[in-house]
């Protein structure tokens, strides 16, 4: 999604990593982890895409970093479910999963960095994506990074841990419900007084940003990497 809809997220991710002295590679053959099909119940279609993912990343070494808590959670948990009956693939999946990190996890837990030298003059609030928070169990790393952004005032978001209503195909299969959920989220963002709502998932971002735009709200929804790279400003 970062690739196709908001490439700036990918560029910001690379910039943040390179600023930390990390040598970044982007395997050109990569496509998707298969989550959309997996979540929709299309297991064999999902398995085929996940197998492609494994082929691509099995050939790499070092940490696999993604600017999406949801994709990371899929690699960690979804693959284990999809390949539960295939010991060979399961072993490969486990090996790749062991190297796979969501961006904030990699920065905070692996590089042990919380201050990346970023500056943002304004109010920031944070929406923890469900798959980041509950799927990966990562509630603190993004906040630790945001707390170190110079000039930024981190304000709480009411109902922060409630789903924004994205849910992949859920957003088009039950659009009315999804619409109500995202409206709740944008109302809370509006009430927080923040200039930007930061999230670690391009899916949530596209959903929340799209609703903020539809409601012509002043606040914007941006990716953590974009704030850390200094590519968005108030």
């Amino acid at each position: 999604m970062a690739d196709a809809v908001r490439p700036e997220i990918g560029e910001a991710t690379v910039a943040v990593l390179e600023a930390q002295g990390v040598k970044v590679e982007f395997p050109a053959a990569q496509t998707c982890c298969g989550q959309p099909a997996y979540n929709a119940g299309y297991r064999s279609e999902a398995r085929a895409v996940a197998a492609h993912f494994l082929n691509v990343f099995d050939a790499t070494s070092g940490p696999v970093v993604t600017p999406s808590g949801s994709c990371a959670a899929m690699v960690h948990h979804g693959f284990a479910d999809l390949f539960g009956n295939d010991p060979v693939q399961l072993r490969r999946a486990q090996a790749v999963a062991a190297r796979t990190r969501e961006l904030s996890q990699f920065l905070v837990h692996d590089l042990k960095v919380t201050n990346v030298g970023a500056r943002f003059n304004g109010r920031i609030t944070y929406h923890p994506s469900c798959h980041q928070l509950r799927g990966l169990g990562e509630g603190t790393a993004p906040l630790a990074l945001l707390a170190q952004v110079a000039g930024a005032e981190l304000v709480p978001l009411a109902g922060a841990e409630e789903c924004c209503g994205f849910g992949g195909l859920f957003s088009v299969k039950l659009p009315q419900v999804s619409g109500e959920m995202v409206a709740r989220k944008t109302a809370n963002i509006d009430a927080s007084g923040a200039a930007v709502c930061v999230t670690c998932d391009p899916g949530c971002l596209m959903n929340i940003a799209g609703r903020l735009q539809r409601e012509q709200k002043a606040a914007r929804c941006v990716h953590l990497a974009e704030v850390l790279a200094g590519s968005v400003q108030a």
């Binding site: 490439p7 982007f26 957003s171 659009p175």
Partner: peptide
């Protein structure tokens, strides 16, 4: 079609004219 529900409730940002992979290449 089946994606109409998205824009019934929010804007769709469109597809970037140049993807991340193109920019990376």
């Amino acid at each position: 079609g089946p994606l109409a529900g998205w824009t019934d409730h929010r804007e769709f940002p469109g597809i970037a004219s140049s993807s991340f992979r193109a920019r990376w290449a």
